[in-house]
C-alpha cells in the first residue's frame, strides 16, 4: 500500500518537502509521519498541516496529489522506492537523488534531477531550466541515472553533467549541455542557442530537424549511421519514453567544443548543423 499525500489548500506560499521520501518514511508510524517537519513559507510545520495523509509507505511508494505547483524538492535526495505525482510540481524535483523512480503526470519546475547520482525520473509534461545540472559553483551535474521529459525543457539542461541520460521529447532552451563532461542528451524538438558550449566529452543528439545553431568551435566530422542510437532507443522505449520520432537514416556528426578537449559529439538530422 502506498502513502498518499493530498494537498488541499490553494495558497501560493512555497512548500518544501525535504526528506519526504519513501526510503526515509518507510517504517515510520503514521502519527510520526504526520508530524514530519516540512517548510511552509518561512516556518517549519508538520506534514499533516499541509497534506491529507492516507495509507502508509511500507511498500516504499509515495503518491502526491492536489495543487503541487509550489511544492518543491519532491523526491530530493531519495535513495530508493517510488514516488508518483499526479499533477505539476515545483523546483528541485529529484535533485541529488541516488536511486528509485519518480513519475510525474504534469510539469515540473527548474532543477529537475540536479546533481542526481542515480535513479530514474520521468515527467509527462514540460520542465524548467537546469535539468540534471550542477548547482552554482559545483563542478559536476548529474553523475548517473535517467531523466525523461515528454514535453519541452528550458535552458542549460545537463550543465556539467558527468554521466547518465537526459531525453527531451519536445524543444529545449539555450546552452544545452553547457560544460558537459560526459553523458547523453537527446532532444526531439527544436533546440536553443549554443548547444554543447564547452562540452568535453559526451553526446548530444538534436533530432528536431531544422537548423541547429552551433558555435564556431564545433567541427563537422561527417555523416554516419550512429551505432549507439539503436541501443538507447531500445532502452528508452522499454522505460516508456514514447511518441517521439527517432531518426532512422544517417546523421551529421560534429566534434567539439574545441575549446575544451573537443571530444564531445553533436548529432543532427542530415544538414541540420549550421554555424
Amino acid at each position: 500500500m502506498a502513502l498518499l499525500l493530498r494537498r488541499t489548500d490553494e495558497s501560493d506560499l512555497p512548500i518544501e518537502v525535504i526528506g519526504v521520501r519513501p526510503d526515509r518514511l518507510r517504517g515510520m508510524p503514521p502519527a510520526e509521519i504526520g508530524r514530519f517537519p516540512i517548510r511552509h513559507g518561512n516556518r517549519t510545520v508538520p506534514l499533516a498541516e499541509v497534506f491529507q495523509i492516507k495509507g502508509d509507505p511500507s511498500d516504499e511508494r509515495i503518491d502526491f496529489e492536489g495543487n503541487l505547483r509550489n511544492v518543491h524538492r519532491i523526491g530530493a535526495q531519495m535513495s530508493a522506492g517510488r514516488i508518483v505525482v499526479d499533477g505539476c510540481t515545483g523546483w528541485h524535483l529529484a535533485a541529488q537523488m541516488s536511486g528509485g523512480t519518480i513519475e510525474v503526470s504534469g510539469d515540473a519546475g527548474d532543477w529537475v534531477g540536479a546533481e542526481m547520482t542515480n535513479g530514474h525520473v520521468s515527467i509527462c509534461g514540460s520542465v524548467g531550466d537546469l535539468v540534471g545540472a550542477s548547482y552554482p559553483g559545483s563542478r559536476r551535474g548529474m553523475t548517473n541515472g535517467t531523466i525523461l521529459v515528454g514535453g519541452s525543457a528550458g535552458a542549460e539542461i545537463g550543465r556539467s553533467m558527468r554521466r547518465g541520460t537526459i531525453a527531451i521529447g519536445g524543444a529545449c532552451g539555450d546552452h544545452a549541455g553547457l560544460g558537459m563532461i560526459a553523458g547523453t542528451i537527446l532532444v526531439f524538438g527544436s533546440c536553443g542557442r549554443y548547444p554543447g558550449a564547452e562540452m568535453r566529452r559526451g553526446t548530444i543528439g538534436l533530432f528536431g530537424g531544422g537548423p541547429v545553431p552551433l558555435l564556431p568551435t564545433f567541427r563537422r566530422a561527417g555523416r554516419f549511421r550512429p551505432q549507439f542510437l539503436a541501443l538507447i532507443e531500445r532502452e528508452l522505449r522499454r522505460t516508456g519514453f514514447a511518441g517521439v520520432d527517432w531518426p532512422s537514416g544517417k546523421l551529421d556528426l560534429y566534434h567539439g567544443d574545441l575549446l575544451s578537449l573537443g571530444k564531445g559529439e553533436i548529432w543532427t538530422r542530415e544538414g541540420g548543423g549550421l554555424a
Partner: peptide, 26 residues
C-alpha cells in the same frame, strides 16, 4: 552570495538555486 532567505530555526539559506522567491513573496 546572491539571494538568501531566512527560515525559522535555520541559518540563512541560499535561494540562488533555491526558490522563485520574488514570485512567492507575500
Amino acid at each position: 552570495p546572491g539571494a538568501v532567505r531566512f527560515v525559522e530555526g535555520q541559518g540563512p539559506l541560499s535561494s540562488d538555486a533555491g526558490l522563485p522567491s520574488a514570485t512567492a513573496a507575500d
